[in-house]
Design a protein around this nucleic acid. Sequence first.
DNA 1: CATGAATGAGTGTTCATTCAT
DNA 2: TATGAATGAACACTCATTCAT
Lengths: 199, 199, 199, 199
Amino acid sequence: MNSLISLRKKPTQKRSSATVAAILEAAALILETSGLENYNTNEIAARAGVSIGSLYQYFPGKDAITRKLIAREMEQLRDTLADVAFLHSGHSGLHHLLAAAINCQLRRPVLARVLDLEEARLPPDEDVERLASQIDKIVHRCLAAPDLPESARAPEAVGDIVAIIKGMVDAAERRGETDISSLTSRVSKSVFGYLGCAP
Amino acid sequence: MNSLISLRKKPTQKRSSATVAAILEAAALILETSGLENYNTNEIAARAGVSIGSLYQYFPGKDAITRKLIAREMEQLRDTLADVAFLHSGHSGLHHLLAAAINCQLRRPVLARVLDLEEARLPPDEDVERLASQIDKIVHRCLAAPDLPESARAPEAVGDIVAIIKGMVDAAERRGETDISSLTSRVSKSVFGYLGCAP
Amino acid sequence: MNSLISLRKKPTQKRSSATVAAILEAAALILETSGLENYNTNEIAARAGVSIGSLYQYFPGKDAITRKLIAREMEQLRDTLADVAFLHSGHSGLHHLLAAAINCQLRRPVLARVLDLEEARLPPDEDVERLASQIDKIVHRCLAAPDLPESARAPEAVGDIVAIIKGMVDAAERRGETDISSLTSRVSKSVFGYLGCAP
Amino acid sequence: MNSLISLRKKPTQKRSSATVAAILEAAALILETSGLENYNTNEIAARAGVSIGSLYQYFPGKDAITRKLIAREMEQLRDTLADVAFLHSGHSGLHHLLAAAINCQLRRPVLARVLDLEEARLPPDEDVERLASQIDKIVHRCLAAPDLPESARAPEAVGDIVAIIKGMVDAAERRGETDISSLTSRVSKSVFGYLGCAP
DNA sequence: CATGAATGAGTGTTCATTCAT
DNA sequence: TATGAATGAACACTCATTCAT
């Protein structure tokens, strides 16, 4: 299940993958601390303790780094959701799913928000779209549980629910909210209300 | 009711205000067609059929144009919401408010979305913040109606509801959805569910 | 003895000459307060309470304003020196000349210094050169007095003495010196020393 | 004894320092031939046979180049004066100092004069001020010699003498004078006269 | 004569990307 | 493979000057 994001060389060797990781983490750190302001390849390479030349050996360009960062976050979300979906199902499963998604988004909230913005700005990426559809599929499976109302099977349901979560969590983060449980409960009310059943 | 966004000179004369309008419309058009890709002052001036010097006679910088665009959209939203809020109230008022907000966001959906992104990237602007608080106030007044549940008076309610609307509408637009009535109904379900009452 | 600096129209009428004066004084003020930083035609016109179009009716360009400013200062110096030279002569005359020159340079010291810099930067101007030669002539006549040593008649004497005065006064002004009498005495020592006679 | 003027990267390698030198020499050449007229970063880079990007790798901005040029001239003056001051002292030392200073100023006279102008226009720079105070110190030590009159120890003495030298040399250069020994002798008369003793 | 909107060449600066070493 | 010096297209912004009204 290796990523298909085009790396100029596959980081099969230890040193290579360490370099890739350093670059990605440096990029993430810059986005978190100074936003897009200082997000440029020279700065990324410098903070990663790597030469700009090396950066271009592992990534075909700046956007590829951003995309890989987006993919990394989405993989994490996918795996988290998959774990939850495997353990629970139906009404209670959706509850856990929401909580898990909110937690994911709030792990590195600033990074998550900036990456969302960049994702909108970037040309569509195969790898990212594949991950998005995987996540959609997981959510869809959860929504298909028999104890959830018919509306949960509607084709827009997954997109709507993901939009509600992202929208509310991003806004809360931007307002500086910290009470995760309150936020989770409000998101739940919205989502279950959307589906037409009590949380 | 004039905007306070600082223009270098007030467009009191006809030619001036026409130039300002042309610049803003050109900027909006670029954002809608090529996104941030070709959004630069030279391109804006060119598409406005105006010299780059004229652009800088009326706007102190590129960001000021973007901010004015944001303010323009927000003013429209504010005025639309104010009209609705004046006519209706309570449960039905909220319904109309949602419909109005969705309509606003969908008038020039791509522009609205890009401007949302830019608003997040730009340093906070007094004018924009004033408009945001005016809109918040209108929504707040609507939510304070006695036939709406207690939860509508919660301090986060306004922010949450705005986030739900924007999130869902943006996502729908990005998926290419066109059925406004379906979208409006789904948003309503989410918002009224959030408040804990039936739409 | 009207200036030959090319004005687009001769300010024969009262209103015209008032406009010219306002422009020149605005230019002088800007140079004094913000230096060359904000020294541009739009700013000059604005501070003069005159439209940029009017400015170009009375001056062929920015440099012409600067040159006229330089000429104005030089005319003042010339007239002051001429008065002094008419009353005194020889050793005592030179004393008075020095004092007069220093006083002139210190009337608007910042302006004088900036104009000196600009004079060096500007292409040579007929009008300015004529004034310079007039001033030279006056100094020369003073130096030709029989009680001054032979060296005072040397061809470089005038230039050297003017250079000493300007150099010392500018430097003193830049250091923030205010004691004119001390400065005058030191300049005298230098100049009379240069000539090889006691002050 | 390296300059503290901030370079973006230290030119430790050969190619780097060659680039820096080329940029500085190109800048100096432009100032000498066309003055401030064509003194812009693109022209500097072009004449240095270097891309505009390289220029900005080694200098944070245009002014930094000018400052470095100023510093370079001052360093040369400082070192020259230091050598002289080490060998001679008192009356004869001052003689040698004057000659050395004049020689320095006349090595690249046009450049020296333009840089003097720019120094006045630029915001005060730590590096330049440090060099100025070092030069002042050297001159001051020379003036403190016991065989020189009391007046040489006056606080304004150093500033006055430097002003006399610069003023006379610049003016001479502008008149196209070439006889250094005559100029030196006249400056000496002025300076020693200023101090109240025979050359 | 006066106005000031409009012009556009010019300039400083950034940053993604390449390539010789 | 790694390095980092070099590149140059692209961009934001200024300001002297013109000209229609």
